[in-house]
């Protein structure tokens, strides 16, 4: 009997699996790549992003580090200075503060202060974001600190496809990158998708239009992209056509896609879950008002976390964070302006 050739079953993959694939594929392709972080080896990472990695690549290339974020970042800098490509995991992105000096003063400035002699291919990645009851120190989005430190790429994917493609792009970029993963999306089955069999990257600095619309532009990244998409669905029922842009990478920022959308809608709302003051939403609004003022028919709006920490219990947490309802209400006010 002739064998029946069956096509491989293409299964949908979640955000976490996409990250795992990116790391293991880059490790396999690049013998000079090293991973280090707390509990990433024997345990496979607190969330399992590096599960099986040490079995595949050994203890020398997948290093279980002491609880010492400054040493993790500093060692990453040294490894990269001596020719390695490095993935450093922060167990939670909140803990990155303990390695802050090594990031902003040592790593971010290295290329600059050596007049280009040294470049550091280091991706510091970690689970970020709220809406999960993680309380003050397991919920943060502290991306603004790093956007304000010249020399760092800052990236935040919202889909499995982007998680894999952006992480690969960041690992190959040659510059240090702070890579914000949304832990609430890690295992969210609704967003699982079939990923390309072949190697691919998502270039840094290219936004994605997640939904087209004509009346108002909703700009966001990370988990808030889904709040914007839900709001757009609600708004459609109310007769408002919202365009949703996922910027995906904060530094570099794809201004063109934002301005092109604004040229259609003339109204913009920026949503992020970090606090308002000096947050990245303010940066986008500032660029819009200084570079695309003539396109505006209404004042730009920021919807952000209140200027508070992220509290623990659900009513408190949701109170301070952006919500679908706040986005809908703001959009209605903006289109009526």
């Amino acid at each position: 009997m002739a064998a029946i050739a069956s096509a491989p079953v293409q299964t949908k993959k979640n955000y976490l699996t996409a990250l795992k694939e990116a790391i293991s594929e880059e490790m396999a392709a690049n013998g000079d790549m090293v991973c280090l972080g707390e509990d990433i080896g024997q345990l496979g990472g607190a969330f399992g992003v590096t599960e099986g990695l040490q079995d595949s690549f050994g203890t020398q290339r997948v290093i279980d580090m002491p609880i010492a974020e400054a040493a993790i970042i500093g060692a990453s800098v040294g490894l990269a200075l001596n020719g390695k490509t490095v993935m450093a995991e922060m167990q939670f992105i909140d803990f990155i503060t303990c390695g802050f000096d090594q990031i902003v003063n040592m790593m971010a400035t290295y290329h600059y202060r050596t007049a280009g002699e040294v470049n550091l291919p280091v991706v510091v990645r970690g689970p970020a974001g709220a809406y999960g009851g993680g309380a003050l120190y397991h919920s943060q989005m502290n991306e603004a600190w790093f956007c304000n430190s010249p020399g760092l790429r800052v990236v935040c994917p919202s889909t499995p496809y982007d998680a894999k493609g952006l992480l690969k792009a960041a690992l190959r970029d040659g510059n240090p990158c702070i890579f914000f993963e949304i832990k609430e999306l890690y295992r969210r089955s609704e967003i699982a998708e079939i990923l390309p069999e072949d190697d691919y990257i998502v270039p840094l600095g290219k936004a994605a239009v997640r939904r087209e619309g004509t009346d108002v532009t909703l700009v966001s990244y990370g988990q808030n992209v889904y709040h914007c998409l839900q709001a757009a669905t609600e708004l459609e029922k109310l007769g408002v056509s919202a365009e949703v842009i996922d910027i995906r990478s904060l530094v570099p920022l794809d201004e063109e896609t934002i301005f092109a959308s604004l040229a259609k809608t003339n109204r913009i709302i920026v949503v992020n879950e970090a606090p308002m003051t000096c947050g990245f939403a303010g940066e986008i609004v500032s660029r819009v008002t200084t570079k695309a003022f003539d396109l505006l028919d209404a004042p730009p709006v920021r919807i952000t976390r209140l200027d508070t920490p992220v509290p623990w219990v659900k009513p408190l947490e949701l109170f301070v964070l952006p919500s679908v309802e706040r986005i809908v209400q703001s959009a209605l006010q903006t289109v009526r302006y």
Binding site: G74, A75, V77, G78, N82, K84, D101, M106
Partner: peptide
């Protein structure tokens, strides 16, 4: 290359020789 942050190059040094050993 050092910064003004004292002791800050020691982890970098450790990373450098880790790579060298590899």
């Amino acid at each position: 290359h050092s910064t003004s942050m004292l002791a800050g190059t020691i982890p970098v040094a450790a990373g450098v020789v880790y790579a060298d050993r590899m």
